[in-house]
Every structure is written in C-alpha cells, then in structure tokens.
C-alpha cells in the first residue's frame, strides 16, 4: 500500500543536518544532503533516476520506478501522488505538485521521467 505523507514535509518543519545545523524543510539544498551523508558513518547518497511513473493501486497513488546508483538497480516504490522527492539541483518535486502545495504548503516542481533524485543506501553495501 502507498506510504502516507509524513509530517516533516509540512512547510516550516525543522530538520537537523548531520553536523547539527537546523534548517526548515523548504530551505534544504542539494548540498545539505551531500554534506550530511559525507559525515555519516552509515549512510551514503545515491542518485536515483526516475525511469517510469505508473498509476498505483488507488487513485491517489503512483508507482515510481527508479534506476538506483552506479549499478542501475531497478527499484519500484508506491507512494501518494503528493509525496515529494528531492531532485538534484532542483529541490522538492512530486507527481502532483499542486496537491503537495495544497496539503503541506511545500513548493514543488513536477516530478518527471529522467529526474535524478536523492536517495540513501548503506555504506556497508558498497
């Protein structure tokens, strides 16, 4: 079943970076994720390219197929259309940016095939 949207995507939510710095969710930049992962002992940033976006099991859901990392592993996730992903160099993006903005006041771009999203993996897997 699709993953419900968690509260930290609400505009104004306070996010703690790995170095302890606090930022609002809407102010996060690509560098914040990269720098936080660099000082994390467990987590590593991967680049996950959107390969396909299909309808999900329910009207408000989509299945997004990602090509993950250097190995281009194919991973599908089912999420609500308003669920935001962080696109490298662009910021928050969702399949239905109007709905994301309406529900969470978080400005979003439209998530498209070919967009490269920030994702995480374990360092020990590499």
């Amino acid at each position: 079943s699709p993953v419900a949207l968690p509260p930290f995507f609400m505009r104004g939510s306070i996010i703690q970076l790995a170095d302890g710095e606090l930022k609002r969710v809407e102010d996060l930049k690509t560098e914040d994720f990269i720098q936080s992962a660099e000082i994390s002992s467990e987590l590593k940033i991967d680049s996950s390219t959107v390969e396909r976006i299909d309808s999900g099991q329910s009207p408000n859901a989509v299945v997004i197929q990602f090509s993950v990392g250097e190995l281009k592993a194919q991973v599908c996730v089912e999420v609500l259309v308003e669920y935001p992903f962080f696109v490298f160099g662009q910021g928050w993006s969702s399949c239905c940016p109007d709905r994301t903005t309406q529900l969470f006041e978080l400005s979003c771009a439209k998530l498209c095939v070919g967009d490269v999203c920030v994702s995480l993996t374990l360092r020990s897997l590499r």
Binding site: P6, I15, S36, C117, V118
Partner: peptide
C-alpha cells in the same frame, strides 16, 4: 517543536526492495 533528522526526508532505496 519537533526536530526531524535529515535522513528521514529522502527514500532509502536498495535492490532488495524491488519486486
């Protein structure tokens, strides 16, 4: 005011989740 960790905001994707 709740404070959320940075790694909550981006998905954890690995091949084992596929299929």
């Amino acid at each position: 005011v709740p404070v959320f960790p940075w790694h909550s905001l981006v998905p954890f994707l690995e091949p084992s989740q596929s299929g």
